[in-house]
Design a protein around this nucleic acid. Structure first.
Lengths: 222, 222
DNA sequence: GAGCGACTGGCAGCAAGCTGCCATTGCTCC
DNA sequence: GGAGCAATGGCAGCTTGCTGCCAGTCGCTC
């Protein structure tokens, strides 16, 4: 059994920036970051300094950033993410509300975990243990796969579908013909088709197939 | 800055079982495990011993196991997972092919990472660092949310759609009319519609709407 | 080359979906 | 009660989607 000095803990953002800031600039092949939102950096200047460092490099590393929808509630954060995306970073939003406060992996060699704030100061954990890093990297990869591209996520505004609309969607999802569906819902054929047309407008779909895809994406079927 | 003895590395399964085996039996509230498949334990007896330890306890911890589809290719592994599920463990399959070789978190207090085999022996990394554990736990949580319950996963057989089929599905997903889609794909209207009919049979759908839902569910659109 | 089978595409006819128009109904508000 | 409005449903005519039938093409085998 061997206990190696592979995990170091840093208290406070200031000390972190001083001791570990160079790691960010040193990223050469990959910079992966997973967090709930952008509030990790209480001091905006730190954040901007880092962002500046990244965007200046055209031949820089692949930058991937994974956030939860919480990062989109704030106008400023949303714009910041869009800016990041526009300068080449890949930004995705994952459906779940939980993500570590902030996990950063640089070139698969260094991992930084930001903990919760304790008495004003946050704790940063820096590790170079390959086992830990590859494990966490794979987990982020898996979450990344299941997440949605920022642009796609923003495109879909959750259309509000009332109870009847859902019944119509369910009928459609079961593959019923309009006639059968209308009968089941106690509507005339004309009205049923009106409902379908409304839903298609709501789902911004040009065909029923597309509407099916969109409805499924939005979880309106089950 | 402080470097604490929070990560220890163990070489070899035997030593691992001797030194860390008690951790498994000690799980009281939660036992989370994420891995590509069950081949992590080369010695089946180790695996069975652990499984035995778990299943004897009716008031035991919540057991959650997350695997990739690779765990289902082998008949034996599939049965093992079904057994686990039948005795109360929650088993899910996540879509991606990547997952750390094996990550185990016990009661959110101890984390074990199994690394790759080196010269026959595998390396196990055990840590109790709260920052690392909460970070990884949240990542697993996120992946878990996006994964599918074992039973549901087994129910759906993935229909194999060739490249052209995908192009057709993409055209449908864009809301093109048959005429426009056929033109784009360089097919006659008749042939295009034949393709669509085949796909609908494949997707077991009675309407295009339903086909859209199913195609979306199976990730055949993007 | 003849025969075969798989694939393709045109045609035709039917079924399904879409929508404009209008009459009817039920409601509120004056 | 009557005007105004929204929702409904019937009708008609159109577009789109669906499929059986047949003829043509290509590649393969004998």
């Amino acid at each position: 059994m061997s206990g190696d000095q592979q995990v170091i803990t840093i208290r406070g953002e200031q000390e972190f920036a001083a001791r570990a800031g160079h790691l960010f600039a040193g990223a050469s092949s990959e910079f992966v970051c997973a967090a709930t939102d952008l509030n990790t950096w209480s001091r905006r200047d730190t954040r901007e300094a880092i962002a500046d460092g990244m965007q200046r490099r055209t031949d820089g590393p692949v930058v991937r950033k994974l956030y939860t929808p919480a990062a989109l509630t704030d106008e400023e954060q949303r714009n910041h993410l869009l800016t990041l995306a526009s300068i080449g970073a890949r930004v995705r939003i994952c459906g779940t509300g939980l993500l570590p406060h902030e996990t950063i992996i640089i070139d698969r060699r260094v991992m930084i975990l930001a903990g919760a704030a304790v008495a004003g100061d946050r704790e940063f954990t820096v590790t170079t243990s390959p086992a830990l890093i590859s494990g966490v990297h794979a987990l982020i990869e898996a979450t990344w796969e299941g997440a949605t591209e920022l642009a796609a996520y923003l495109r879909r505004d959750p259309p509000q579908v009332d109870a009847e609309g859902r019944r119509v969607l369910r009928a459609l999802g079961e593959g019923l013909t309009d006639e059968a569906a209308a009968r089941r819902l106690g509507l005339s054929l004309r009205t049923y088709r009106r409902r379908v047309a409304e839903l298609m407008r709501l789902l911004e779909s040009e065909s029923r197939f597309q509407a099916g895809v969109h409805a499924g994406e939005l979880g309106l079927i089950s």
